[in-house]
Design a binder for these strands. Sequence first.
DNA 1: TTTT
DNA 2: TTTT
Lengths: 164, 164, 164, 164
Amino acid sequence: MATRGVNKVILIGNLGADPEVRYTPSGDAVANVRLATSETWKDRATGELQERTEWHNVVFFGKTAEIVKQYLRKGSKIYVEGKLRTRKWQTQDGQDRYTTEVVVDMGGTMQMLDSRQGSASSVPLEDTPPPARSRPTTPDAARPSHPDSGGFGDGADFDDDIPF
Amino acid sequence: MATRGVNKVILIGNLGADPEVRYTPSGDAVANVRLATSETWKDRATGELQERTEWHNVVFFGKTAEIVKQYLRKGSKIYVEGKLRTRKWQTQDGQDRYTTEVVVDMGGTMQMLDSRQGSASSVPLEDTPPPARSRPTTPDAARPSHPDSGGFGDGADFDDDIPF
Amino acid sequence: MATRGVNKVILIGNLGADPEVRYTPSGDAVANVRLATSETWKDRATGELQERTEWHNVVFFGKTAEIVKQYLRKGSKIYVEGKLRTRKWQTQDGQDRYTTEVVVDMGGTMQMLDSRQGSASSVPLEDTPPPARSRPTTPDAARPSHPDSGGFGDGADFDDDIPF
Amino acid sequence: MATRGVNKVILIGNLGADPEVRYTPSGDAVANVRLATSETWKDRATGELQERTEWHNVVFFGKTAEIVKQYLRKGSKIYVEGKLRTRKWQTQDGQDRYTTEVVVDMGGTMQMLDSRQGSASSVPLEDTPPPARSRPTTPDAARPSHPDSGGFGDGADFDDDIPF
DNA sequence: TTTT
DNA sequence: TTTT
């Protein structure tokens, strides 16, 4: 994908909730995540510590969405590299709305940052079976055979055959 | 400003219109810009060249806002480093709305990328006098004496005393 | 290519000399470039403007190397996204040396930032190791047919079929 | 510090050894760190998992250097944002050498990424030039008084008064 | 060795 | 020399 211009977002933050995963008609996973990045600073006047949390809508596609589904959950800390995209959508009564998301696709990356064994986020999410005919026979075939090995699943680019 | 987490946006694109500049009650400039980043790619099926343009709301503060005001205009090509911020606001009839912007403040940067002399964007915007008492006596004192010298004004970080 | 860890470099600068291009035995182009990034600041004590230029060795591979060869030359301004790599090599008398380069490969990008028509860097470099007299009559054969269309050659990612 | 050009490095990796800290004549800390970033990929031919580790010299100044000294040690995982700088130096027999480093100064950032309590890197390094037997009995004296608060020490920018 |  |  060639570009004229640069559109890049880099985030490190924690999931505010478990990922929401859905499947396209063609069977591709799409994962949505709420990611919090916090900044803290000292108020110059009062000297008090301030904190501001920013929430980001992050969308993953394809193979990375599968990894997100399996390995991330509420509280997981991740590094994300993606791009900005503003989507137009309509409310039920036909009003226009715009939502800006961070899209992580072929040009992006996701990495898990808390792969210590035993930590919450290295425990795979329950592998909820996707829509009947999209991945029917062996829904868990891709799950690593040693779920307790810790830290697997880290590092996922789109041109991977397998993420680990 | 300390951070727990990373929130970084990097853009290269062109202004869709002249910057809109306003002043805070304390006299600080705030500049808003619509920035277009385009990506093009070849459709795998048809082989046709596709293009998608993304529009970003970029907000500059303080000294950088002044530079934006003076040196950027419709068509200007810039590099921007900032962070994401989603603002909640209300419509006239009291409905909640959210707008995501790229904020360029002390932790960010702006650089002009088309400083060729004679190019549109190196010509300062008309220096519309700010609110009466905020910059009273010599509103244009900071304007370079050789407006045709081209290319000055490139590069502006917040800790500059003077940007050039 | 999966990663555990992040290794990313982003540069905007000017070429200090024409690119040096060579070919691997398998026929793939490799382009080397010296890229200058400058930073300027005001000395706090003297108030004088200081400047420091940093020189980077940037290496391009494959299709991007071809584009570098054709469209970049001394003075060209580019945006580069790549990664750090330190190479070990030997002097003629067998001493070890290390050179750190910015590698722009499949995970990276290059964009030309001075695509104004008539500007030096939008003029293609002379094409390849041309058998002495083979190119003189039509030195600009590789030049796009609409030299005034501006902006060609900008934007090159590795998964492009053709950069424009 | 204004810039014409962009010179930015973003790394996530692990320390290969404890930081080396020295002090300038004026008493400012300078910390040097060896940082490993690994990338892994599947060999297309053999299908075997490949790994390549890149080692980076990272230099921290001032307050961040103090934090590096106190909280990082061999194995610590960090996020780093800095710039490239190639330094010329001389061997004992007067030969020129060049070393490229990632400099983390006022325009950069460091963040600790393994702040789980109990993890190696949240344990402060032994404090300064310690009179030989001064630390063994209370090795953790420098540890914040609320060790269970978790995540302290994360996040350090240069304009902090205190990093946490 | 670039650029302004 | 790290990490998985």
